[in-house]
């Protein structure tokens, strides 16, 4: 299982989870084996961090390209949430903490799933609609 964490720096397990998914500078990708042991840790840059617009789209695309199945950040914007959901990812929110602690909390089932939608108005809104196109992925 690959877990992607939005992080503020490029320091891997000792880094802090970023409160912002779309515009965090780095992703730390943590691979966990069947026994819940750490298999590998990789840091990749988030191209969304420097995108003028559509940051969440680029960030979500990067996570998908790296074949992660779980994503953890402080909060997710409307665009990124829509794409991560469309890619069938497990989207989790957490408070500010170290990457290693967030992974631990996730594995022990303590991180809440992101509802992503809030109680916003019942119409329009970015990222609220169902995915476009409707074709196979």
């Amino acid at each position: 299982m690959k877990i992607c964490l939005a992080t503020s720096g490029g320091e891997g397990m000792k880094d802090n989870v970023s409160m912002n998914f779309g515009r965090c500078p780095y992703f730390t990708i943590v691979e966990i084996d069947e026994n819940k042991d750490l298999k590998s840790v990789r840091v990749v840059q988030n191209p969304g961090g420097s995108a003028g617009s559509g940051a969440g789209v680029q960030a979500a695309q990067t996570v998908a390209d790296n074949e992660c199945t779980v994503v953890i950040a402080g909060a997710f914007g409307p665009n990124s949430f829509q794409i991560l959901k469309a890619a069938n990812m497990d989207v989790r929110e957490c408070q500010e903490m170290k990457v290693e602690d967030a992974v631990g909390q996730y594995l022990s089932g303590k991180l809440p799933a992101s509802s992503g939608e809030g109680r916003g108005p019942g119409r329009g809104g970015q990222g609220r609609g169902k995915r476009e196109g409707g074709g196979p992925w």
């Binding site: 559509g54 940051a55 196109g133």
Partner: peptide, 15 residues
């Protein structure tokens, strides 16, 4: 505008 997304092995879709 970064308005098109594509997953691995997948077709493009629009934001």
């Amino acid at each position: 505008e970064n308005a098109i997304v594509m997953f691995k092995e997948g077709y493009p879709f629009l934001m």
